[in-house]
């Protein structure tokens, strides 16, 4: 069941934000081409992410049937201009999305050279995008003006739970307060920030360095759907020795 973070802004277990009144969804941090980048490093990486991302997207489009799709940065991963296959895929994915939806790209730190592709498909690309009363921005730069409600990405937040005998369970999550929210990564293979253990200054996003992160509410994505885990502060207090 989607859970409302703010009026009309719902977190979903499919890792997208759903805004029914705006008929829009927001996804972030797909990092398309990540595998190609690994292969350039000499890693004999098989294809995996593309399939999973395609499946997830299909489910989302099926279930929420949005008119508008906003990508909150890092649609692609940073990879060399020489990876032709990867460029083709980024192109194909954008083309597919843009075909039947209004797509809007918000620029992330990995989105180099995406502009030309976006232009080709008539997809606008900006540093921030205002939809409803939410400002959607990636979060890797602190010079982007914030709105009353700011939706960030970039962090790839997850929590790590431990029980009394030390077993662990990791889950990507949404973080939110009244005016700031951070969405989980869409990519199944990127690493992220363990927010159950991190302090403000440990966060990737400079916008969060001045935020009291312990006040963030946590909504985890699991096989059982979304799970409410109170706040980061509460989680940390649990594990204090």
């Amino acid at each position: 069941m989607p859970e409302e973070l703010w009026p009309d802004v719902h977190a979903t277990e499919e890792r997208c934000i759903w805004m029914p009144e705006q008929d829009a969804i927001v996804i972030a941090d797909l990092h398309l081409g990540y595998e190609g980048a690994l292969r350039m490093d000499g890693v004999a990486m098989p294809r995996y992410q593309d399939r999973v991302i395609s499946e997830r997207l299909e489910r989302i489009l099926d279930r929420y049937d949005p008119r508008c799709i906003v990508v909150n940065g890092d649609f692609k991963h940073n990879f060399s201009r020489n990876l032709r296959q990867e460029w083709r895929e980024v192109n194909a994915m954008l083309s597919f999305l843009a075909d039947e939806h209004d797509v809007h790209l918000v620029r992330g730190n990995h989105d180099n050279f995406l502009k030309t592709i976006a232009v080709r498909h008539n997809v606008p690309m900006t540093w921030r995008y205002d939809i409803g009363d939410v400002t959607v921005t990636h979060g890797h730069r602190d010079d982007v003006p914030r709105g009353d409600r700011t939706l960030l990405a970039h962090e790839h937040p997850f929590i790590k739970l431990r029980d009394e005998v030390g077993a662990t369970l990791s889950m990507p999550c949404y973080l939110y307060t009244d005016d700031v929210a951070v969405m989980p990564a869409f990519s199944p293979i990127v690493s992220g920030t363990d927010v159950s253990d991190a302090m403000s200054r440990d966060y990737l996003s400079p916008l969060l360095h001045s935020v009291d992160v312990d006040a963030f509410n946590v909504l985890a994505v699991s096989d059982l759907g979304l799970l409410d885990f109170a706040t980061i502060g509460d989680l940390k207090a649990m594990y204090r020795p």
């Binding site: 739970l161 077993a167 369970l169 885990f229």
Partner: peptide
């Protein structure tokens, strides 16, 4: 060492209950 339970769902449920109980 520690051994993980195989049924992640049940484990997740159990963990969640415990955590919320404690909080």
């Amino acid at each position: 060492d520690v051994v993980l339970m195989e049924d992640r769902k049940a484990f997740t449920r159990q963990m969640h209950e415990q955590v919320m109980e404690a909080i």
